[in-house]
Amino acid sequence: MTGHAHAQDPNVAHHFENADQQYQSAKLGMWVFLATEILFFGGLFCAYAVYRANHPEIFVFGHHFLDKSLGALNTVILICSSFTIAWAVRAAQLKQIRLLKVLLALTLACAAGFLSVKYVEYSHKWKHGLLWASRYSPEAHHGEQRDHAEETGAESAASGETTESSPEAVQEGLERSKIAPAASGPAGLAVADERPGEEIVAEPKNAQVYFSIYFLLTGLHGIHVLGGMGAMAWLLSLARRGAFDTGHFTKVDMVALYWHLVDLIWIYLFLLLYLID
């Protein structure tokens, strides 16, 4: 290839003019990637929003079963980790390799902490059978309850009287399903809920959907956390092999960006799933 000055510099790939061009490219690439990540989660948030708009009662009901204090704890943990990794970038820029290793280790520890807290939460739900739809079984009699709803729904579906409700049904376009839920509104189906330790709340129909969404969102986020941990372990090994001694901090910077996003998304999850009712 053409003999450029940088041909020696091990950190610059052959097809780049110089280190800056490479850094700029990596940075832009990362930002675009983060944009796709946001859209990815955006889809789920959208589904959440639509379903919530149609059945607010389900979410009000569901969020009582999440432990706010554990959620808050996790939020704090992640914010700390964001801080440590930001600092790690600085360390890498200043070639403070020992500090860099410590900070990366700390971030990794935070991430692990986050996941273990999530584990506690999940296992609690598992015990009470508060799982996604097909595995949802807090009480035995819910099953029949639901079947019954289907029937009444089917009847009213065919009988003439429901046609009154049809005009707005058409105008509204994207409106809630008419047959199953509407035929017997949430209140009608409410059953007193004697779950020990929980305040008594009337369980609306289809409450399980809340938990499905909960597991989808937190699960997907969890996977991203795992990915982040992998990336940080990789950085650590690089640091040990002295990859950052030359002050080449691009990789650390990229992982940090990614990690901030993972953190940000969690804050939204905490808001949407644990807090608002």
């Binding site: 639509v50 994207l174 289809n206 959907v209 499905s212 989808l216």
Partner: peptide, 17 residues
Amino acid sequence: TLGVGIFDPALGGDPVL
């Protein structure tokens, strides 16, 4: 696989979504 129900009218979901 999980029967989430966001698109399933029987579970209050919306197929048109």
